[in-house]
Amino acid sequence: MPKRSFHRARAAARALSYSVHGAADELIARRSPGLRSQLLRAVASVPANIAEAEQQTSDAQALNFLRIALGSANEVGAHLETAADAGALSPKVYTACQGTRQVVKVMLQRLIERLEEQARRP
């Protein structure tokens, strides 16, 4: 798996992290500290696990970290939905964060599919 693919996914995940950190400022203003904390932990996990995957020596190990990153991206989505439903995020900020998250998810899904395909080859 080319390192370039991991690098691009990690760059997109960092963009998601910056976007979500900006959104978290709205959560402070709305007094949602628990949700803010969960959201920030989940979003930090995405690029961190991609970086871990990139350094693995086997596809199986890399897949494990990429799946964790994908799960964390899904968790970010759930927290963003909760914040939006509670009125703690503006629709504009919610839409921007979810759009960036969707890009990251697609990149992770493609990386996972490619590694799974490689693993199936004899």
Results as ranks from 00 to 15, higher is better:
23 A>D: 08
38 Q>V: 08
55 Q>V: 09
39 L>N: 02
57 T>D: 06
32 S>R: 15
12 A>E: 06
44 A>K: 05
32 S>C: 13
11 A>F: 09
59 D>V: 14
28 I>A: 15
20 V>F: 03
21 H>F: 13
28 I>G: 05
29 A>C: 05
39 L>M: 11
56 Q>W: 10
17 S>E: 15
54 E>A: 11
59 D>W: 11
40 L>G: 02
52 E>I: 14
48 A>G: 09
13 A>F: 01
21 H>R: 14
13 A>M: 01
27 L>I: 01
29 A>W: 07
28 I>L: 15
37 S>V: 13
53 A>M: 13
55 Q>H: 04
51 A>Y: 03
11 A>R: 13
36 R>C: 08
22 G>K: 07
24 A>D: 08
33 P>D: 04
22 G>N: 09
40 L>V: 13
38 Q>A: 14
15 A>M: 13
14 R>S: 01
53 A>T: 11
45 S>P: 06
23 A>Y: 06
14 R>G: 03
49 N>M: 09
15 A>L: 15
16 L>Q: 00
39 L>K: 06
14 R>P: 06
38 Q>G: 11
14 R>N: 09
29 A>Y: 04
54 E>T: 07
21 H>G: 06
51 A>H: 03
18 Y>I: 12
58 S>H: 02
55 Q>P: 03
49 N>P: 01
58 S>I: 03
15 A>Y: 10
52 E>K: 08
39 L>T: 04
41 R>L: 15
54 E>W: 10
20 V>Q: 02
30 R>F: 13
32 S>F: 06
50 I>Q: 02
47 P>E: 00
32 S>G: 09
51 A>K: 02
42 A>Y: 01
48 A>P: 09
20 V>R: 04
32 S>D: 04
59 D>F: 14
36 R>A: 12
50 I>K: 04
19 S>Y: 01
33 P>I: 06
53 A>Y: 12
17 S>M: 07
34 G>C: 05
29 A>E: 07
16 L>D: 02
25 D>K: 15
20 V>H: 02
29 A>D: 04
32 S>E: 15
